[in-house]
């Protein structure tokens, strides 16, 4: 049984918003006492995904909440936009693949930094990426 508490939502419309998302995720990760390395991994993943929401999705939101399951705590972060969507998810998840001028490490890297990772996307309708990191 997973329960969720303290849902907070932030807009992602500018570079400053990306910084605010990082700060929120950091604060929430500290609250559930993720190890320092795990905090850093989660915040880095959030930074990549929030930037994708801004750069590729145009704008969107980040939703952060605390999860509890079997005595463990976790942080879930959801990045949602109503942008162009991703036509080929496998390709987008290939390290080094980018449709623009990036390094193409954001999406694939974020996946490696978290415990749970899901993409829900449809061309022309938008993209939602959900990540979870649990305490050890």
């Amino acid at each position: 049984m997973t329960t969720s508490t303290g849902v907070e939502e932030l807009p992602i419309r500018s570079g400053d918003d990306v910084v605010r998302v990082r700060q929120l995720v950091r604060a929430r990760a500290q609250e559930v006492r993720l190890s320092l390395v795990d905090q850093t991994k989660l915040v880095t993943a959030a930074s990549e995904l929030a930037r994708n929401t801004l750069v590729h999705g145009g704008s969107g939101t980040a939703t952060v909440e605390t999860l509890h399951r079997d005595g463990r705590a976790g942080i879930r972060a959801v990045f949602a936009d109503e942008g162009p969507g991703i036509p080929d998810v496998d390709q987008a998840l290939t390290p080094g693949w980018t449709s623009g001028s990036g390094l193409g490490l954001g999406l694939s890297g974020a996946r490696k930094l978290v415990d749970e990772f899901a993409i829900d996307t449809a061309v022309g309708r938008g993209t939602t990426v959900t990540v979870v990191k649990w305490t050890r």
Binding site: V37, T40, L105, G109, K112, L113
Partner: peptide
């Protein structure tokens, strides 16, 4: 560079 940052960068593939 802090250890946690270095570990994360390596995991990220950078």
């Amino acid at each position: 560079m802090r250890p946690a940052v270095a570990i994360t960068l390596v995991e990220l593939g950078l």
